[in-house]
Nucleic acid binder design. Structure first.
Length: 637
DNA sequence: TTAGGGTTAG
C-alpha cells in the first residue's frame, strides 16, 4: 500500500514556515514538519480513518504528541470516527488526563455501545484528580442502565449538576431507556423550560412503552418541530404496528418546514412494508433517488428498501435494489434471504447463504432464522438439521428459542409432529414460548394429531401462554372432528380468559389507495356488487370442482350456513372487490393479517384460473402467488 | 467537548 508519508520526497527546506497553512483533505503531509496549530487544524478537518492515520504518523514524527491540545484533538478524532480502542490506548498514555480527556474517552466508548468500559472509566475517574462535570455525566449516562444510572443521578444531585439542561435530558433518556416512565416524566416536569430535545426524549419514552396517545399529545404541543421529533413519533407508530398513522405523519412532515432525513426514510419504509402498499414504497424510492432530497442510498436505506419491496410482494424490485447496492453488510444479506424465504423461493435463499459465506461474511443468528425459515417453507428437513448444526459447530451461535421455533415449524409442517414435540422437550435451559406452541398446534391440526394437540393445549392454557390463536386452533381441531360440545367449552374458556380473537382482515391496494375488509364486511359502498361477484365466483369455481372445506368453520351450523361463513372471509371480499375494480388481466395483491385458511387457498387457485389473473396473497407467514390453478407454495405451508 | 430519532426475525 502506498502511503503519502513514505513516498513523498524529503523536504528541501526543513523550516516549517514553508508548509502551507491551509490544507485540503488530500494534501500530502511531509514528514517531521507539523506545528501543533497545524496538526490541530488538520485533525479538525479529518473525516477518514486513512487520513487520520497519516496525521497521527506526522504528529509522531513531528514529536508534538505531548502538546495537550494536539493529543486531545487526536483522541477526539479517533473517538468521532468510532475507534474507541485507539482512543483508549492514547488516553492511557496521557499523563494526568484532565476532565476533557476523561469525558472524551467515556463518550467514545458509550457511543460505540462499549458501555461496560465507559462505566469503568467513569468509576476510575472518580478516584482520579479530575472531577466530572456536566459534559462527563451526559456522556456517562449514555452508557448506563437503571441501576448504575441511579448512582450517577445521585452523584449529579450531590454536585448540583442535575439541573443543567443537558444533564437533566441525559437522565431523562436514561430512565426512558430503562422503561421507568414515571421517573422520566418527573424529570421532564421539573424542567423549567422543556427544550425540544427533552420533549423528544419523552416522546420516545412513551412510544417505547406503546403509549402512543401520550407521545402524540406531547408531539402535538411542540410549536417548532424539527426532523428528530417527527422521526421519533413516526417510528413509534411504525414500531407499534400503526403503519397508517406513520405514513400520515410522513405526509404532514412533507408539508412542514422539516425535511425528511435518513431516519425518516427508515421509519416510513418500515410502515409501508407493514401496509404492503407498493405504490407508496415506489414513491419513497423515487424520493430517495432525487438528489435534491439528500438521502444517501447506504446499507441501511438499501436494506429498508429491500425489506419494503419484498413485504409488498415485489420480490423482483427487492432483488434489483440488492443487486445494485455496492456495499452490502450482513443485515442486507439477511433481509434478502428472509425475502426469498417468505416468497417460497427456498433454493434462492440457500444459494444466497452459500454466496455470503463464499464472500467471507460471518452469518448472524438472524441469518439462520432466514435459512431455517426457507427450509421450513420447502419441507427440507434434512437440510434444516444440517444448518441447525452448522450454526452451532462452525459459527458458534447458540440457538435461541427463535431457532428452535423454526425447527419445530419445519418438523411440524413436514408431519413430524412428535419429533418436533421431542425437540421442545429436549431444549436445554430454553423455555418454550407461545409462538412455538402455536406453530406445533397448527401442525397438529394439519395432520389431525388430536391427543397431542389436547396435551399441548392444556399445557399452554395452564401456563398462561394461550392467545387467541391457541383457542382458535383448538376449537378448529374439535370442529374438524364435529365435537361441538368441546368447541363450545373452548369458546367459553376463551371468553373467561378475556382473550379476544383477532378478526380476519385483508387489504387490497388499488391505485394509490388501500382498502381494508374484515370478515363479513358490508361497509364498503360497493358492497352489493362485491357480494354479487362472490356469488358468481362461487358458482363458477364449483363448476371447476371446488368443494367448500367446511371443517374449519367454528360454529355448529348446517352445511349451507357453513359455506356462507367461508364465503365472507376477508380475503374473499378483497378479491371480489379487486375483480370488479380492475381491468381484466391485472394482478391482484392482497395482504392478510392471519394465515390464509385451506378453503380460501383452494378457492383462490381456482379463482386465479377462471379469471386468468395472477393473485398474490401475503398472509401472516408467507406469500402465495396464485396462477393458473396453482399456488407457488405447492400447497405446502 | 455535552442532551433527543434508526436496519434484518420464528
Amino acid at each position: 500500500m502506498s502511503h503519502a508519508l513514505f513516498t513523498s520526497p524529503p523536504p528541501t527546506n526543513t523550516t516549517t514556515t514553508t508548509i502551507p497553512f491551509t490544507f485540503s483533505p488530500s494534501t500530502r503531509l511531509r514528514p517531521s514538519s507539523l506545528l501543533p496549530e497545524q496538526a490541530s487544524l488538520l485533525l479538525s478537518q479529518c473525516t477518514t480513518a486513512r487520513r487520520l492515520l497519516e496525521i497521527h504518523a506526522a504528529i509522531l514524527r513531528s514529536e508534538i504528541l505531548h502538546h495537550t491540545v494536539v493529543n486531545f484533538r487526536l483522541q477526539k478524532s479517533y473517538a468521532s470516527l468510532g475507534y474507541a480502542d485507539k482512543c483508549q490506548i492514547l488516553f492511557r498514555r496521557t499523563p494526568d488526563p484532565n476532565v476533557f480527556f476523561w469525558t472524551n474517552a467515556i463518550h467514545a466508548h458509550a457511543i460505540q455501545g462499549l458501555c461496560f468500559i465507559a462505566r469503568l472509566l467513569f468509576t476510575e475517574m472518580l478516584s482520579s484528580d479530575a472531577t466530572p462535570n456536566g459534559y462527563t455525566l451526559s456522556a456517562a449516562l449514555k452508557a448506563c442502565r437503571l441501576s448504575f444510572g441511579k448512582v450517577v443521578h445521585g452523584y449529579a444531585i450531590k454536585q448540583s449538576l442535575h439541573t443543567q439542561p443537558y444533564v437533566a435530558t441525559a437522565l431523562l433518556d436514561m430512565y426512558a431507556r430503562g422503561g421507568d416512565v414515571e421517573a422520566a416524566r418527573f424529570l421532564f416536569d421539573e424542567m423549567p423550560e422543556q427544550p425540544i430535545v427533552s420533549t423528544t426524549a419523552m416522546i420516545t419514552c412513551y412510544a417505547k412503552q406503546g403509549d402512543l396517545a401520550q407521545a402524540r399529545q406531547l408531539f402535538d404541543e411542540i410549536s417548532q418541530r424539527d426532523s428528530v421529533c417527527w422521526n421519533a413519533m413516526m417510528d413509534g407508530y411504525a414500531q407499534y404496528r400503526k403503519p397508517n398513522e406513520a405514513v400520515n405523519l410522513f405526509r404532514q412532515m412533507l408539508k412542514s418546514d422539516s425535511r425528511p432525513n435518513e431516519v425518516t426514510i427508515l421509519a416510513v419504509l418500515s410502515a409501508i412494508a407493514q401496509i404492503g402498499c407498493s405504490s407508496s414504497g415506489k414513491w419513497v424510492h423515487s424520493f430517495i433517488k432525487n438528489k435534491d432530497n439528500r438521502i444517501q442510498l447506504n446499507t441501511k436505506v438499501g436494506n429498508a428498501l429491500i425489506d419494503m419491496y419484498y413485504k409488498c410482494g415485489n420480490l423482483e424490485d427487492a432483488c434489483l435494489v440488492f443487486d445494485t447496492m455496492k456495499e452490502k453488510d450482513i443485515v442486507v444479506w439477511n433481509t434478502m434471504i428472509a425475502g426469498y424465504a417468505m416468497h417460497g423461493q427456498s433454493q434462492k435463499a440457500l444459494e444466497l447463504f452459500d454466496m455470503l459465506r463464499f464472500r467471507g461474511l460471518w452469518p448472524t443468528d438472524i441469518t439462520f432464522i432466514g435459512v431455517l425459515n426457507a427450509c421450513s417453507h420447502a419441507g427440507l428437513v434434512e437440510q434444516g438439521y444440517r444448518f441447525f448444526r452448522l450454526m452451532k459447530v462452525e459459527y458458534k451461535i447458540e440457538p435461541k428459542v427463535e431457532h428452535y421455533g423454526c425447527m419445530v415449524d419445519l418438523l411440524g409442517r413436514a408431519g413430524l409432529v412428535e419429533e418436533a414435540y421431542d425437540l421442545i422437550l429436549g431444549m436445554n435451559g430454553i423455555e418454550p414460548d407461545a409462538i412455538m406452541w402455536g406453530s406445533l398446534l397448527a401442525s397438529c391440526r394439519l395432520y389431525n394429531k388430536m391427543s397431542l394437540a389436547e396435551k399441548i393445549a392444556n399445557h399452554v392454557v395452564s401456563k398462561g401462554y394461550a392467545n387467541s390463536g391457541t383457542y382458535v386452533l383448538l376449537s378448529n381441531i374439535y370442529a374438524a372432528l364435529g365435537n361441538w360440545e368441546k368447541v363450545t367449552s373452548v369458546r367459553q374458556l376463551m371468553k373467561e380468559s378475556g382473550v379476544q380473537k383477532d378478526p380476519g382482515c385483508s387489504a387490497i391496494e388499488l391505485g394509490n389507495k388501500v382498502f381494508e375488509f374484515v370478515v363479513g364486511d358490508r361497509s364498503h359502498p360497493k358492497s352489493r356488487k362485491i357480494y354479487a361477484m362472490l356469488d358468481e365466483l362461487n358458482a363458477v369455481i364449483k363448476a371447476h370442482g371446488y368443494v367448500p372445506d367446511t371443517d374449519l368453520v367454528l360454529h355448529d351450523l348446517e352445511e349451507a350456513e357453513k359455506e356462507k361463513a367461508l364465503k365472507v372471509h376477508s380475503e374473499r371480499l378483497a378479491v371480489a372487490f379487486g375483480l370488479i375494480s380492475t381491468k381484466p388481466g391485472t394482478e391482484i395483491k392482497i395482504m392478510k393479517n392471519l394465515r390464509v385458511c385451506v378453503d380460501c387457498h383452494n378457492a383462490f387457485k381456482l379463482i386465479a384460473k377462471v379469471t386468468r389473473r395472477k393473485i398474490v396473497v401475503r398472509d401472516r407467514s408467507r406469500f402465495h402467488h396464485f396462477s393458473e390453478g396453482l399456488c407457488s407454495c405447492g400447497d405446502y405451508w
